[in-house]
Nucleic acid binder design. Sequence first.
DNA 1: GTTTATGCAAAACATTTGCAGCCTT
DNA 2: AAGGCTGCAAATGTTTTGCATAAAC
Lengths: 152, 152
Amino acid sequence: MESRIDRIKKQLHSQKYKLTPQREATVRVLLENEKDHLSAEDVYLLVKEKAPEIGLATVYRTLELLTELKVVDKINFGDGVSRYDLRREGAEHFHHHLVCIECGAVDEIQEDLLGDVEQVVERDWHFIIKDHRLTFHGICYRCQNKKEETKD
Amino acid sequence: MESRIDRIKKQLHSQKYKLTPQREATVRVLLENEKDHLSAEDVYLLVKEKAPEIGLATVYRTLELLTELKVVDKINFGDGVSRYDLRREGAEHFHHHLVCIECGAVDEIQEDLLGDVEQVVERDWHFIIKDHRLTFHGICYRCQNKKEETKD
DNA sequence: GTTTATGCAAAACATTTGCAGCCTT
DNA sequence: AAGGCTGCAAATGTTTTGCATAAAC
């Protein structure tokens, strides 16, 4: 049975890139932390646990490569760092994010909420959409509950 | 009659901030380039034409202040710089952007496209939305026409 | 006069690049 | 031997900070 790593390996090979041990370690970290939104530094520190000799520049180069191959998406929530988010396999569109302004948590919405909106934009603005970024900033349900508790 | 600057001045005063000449020059540059998406450096160079003695740090501090007051929105299109975009007065929500991947042009959509989507998110994800960021990446109508011309 | 804001230079970060050495073929 | 890939260190580019001075209240 073919694993996710195998498929990424094939994707690399099809573009004449190799899945080196460093690249594999980096991809594994991303797979193991699929729910998180790691910065390059975060990835570096986690990869170092498996492959202590790796350099930060290699992690940057790998993340750039994976972005190019659309294995990951590079996102930016407005703090000074880029974050790297694994794309769902076969996902037509990049998923959306809910960023909590109280606690900083980032949740994901996998559903495609923009189907109708994109039709309107393509028709009314004559813009051919290739990708999108949608992030909501607000208060997550956990922080709403925290407030309920302290209210009385 | 009250001008836009006057209203921003009042907003500053209400939070115990002053509208210094440097801040005023910065705000004027933003007003005069409302359609653009200027980086801090861009703003700095334009402000220098009016107030040559201003320092880059002051521009950064002013832009930070205006972001805090929600006079401008700090946005990031994925190149390494933050851009500052004047909020429409009285606009309930931040407007949306169309970024062309061919020529880099950034167009704005003032219409609120997300009304329905936000209702769904608030209901189904129990998330209280305070703000949003929506950017489409694709090909603008100008670049589509350029291609038409070269086609034959 | 005390606070607030400024300009400058230095510092802090995130990211990129140059390059010599290392694998893999 | 040639190519791609790596690690390190240096360079780059953006944004922030410290501090002494200047302006505003």
